[in-house]
Design a protein around this nucleic acid. Sequence first.
DNA 1: TCTTTCTGCAACCGCTCGGTTGCAGGAGGG
DNA 2: CCCTCCTGCAACCGAGCGGTTGCAGAAAGA
Lengths: 103, 103
Amino acid sequence: MSQVDDVLAALADPMRRRVLDLVAAKGPVSASALATELPVSRQAIVKHLSVLEKAELVASERAGRENNFSVRSGALDATATWMASLASQWDRRLAAIKKIAEA
Amino acid sequence: MSQVDDVLAALADPMRRRVLDLVAAKGPVSASALATELPVSRQAIVKHLSVLEKAELVASERAGRENNFSVRSGALDATATWMASLASQWDRRLAAIKKIAEA
DNA sequence: TCTTTCTGCAACCGCTCGGTTGCAGGAGGG
DNA sequence: CCCTCCTGCAACCGAGCGGTTGCAGAAAGA
């Protein structure tokens, strides 16, 4: 469940979502390359990437002197599933309450 | 899209998720009632509820001198859908890249 | 080898955020 | 009418976070 926790915390920040979108669009890409297309410093992006990596939304692979990041959909998918099941859980409970109220 | 933004920001905080769970479990309930079952002050819970209400995860209904909150699943469902579609989008892109690499 | 460039680490700063406390106001019950 | 209880507003505080800057180190190219 801390998996879901990390994903939600990671996605909460708009700049982090922009970074994530860029990584998804550009494929394997380095932090420095991302920095050229975003209005923040490289270090800021490095921090964002480390958060995203901890949430397993992104994975890094070293190639020589540069570190390339790619997107991983597993954690995102798991979180989406968790949210959907939570929503349906609420709906079921609401339906049950309504049924009791009608009886 | 700011709907999704608000939902993610709201769910990012663990205490806020606890509040949300309690509201879902207890049905229509006041902030003061929630405060008796959580290790924080009433005011803290009021703030959390206002954030949840802005994200449309919760709705309030006044009954005399007390304000009762209930859960709303719409925004949560929408966000789950958004996340799932984002994940499948990534998968399609990765599949496309892989196909190019194999060609 | 020397230079370039990409990375990683650490310190620092301002602001937002979660939380508390105190107080004023309004609705109900005796 | 008076007292009680629940609410809402505002000020305040500490911690965490997003962001920057500076510097040291390692890998590739000339």
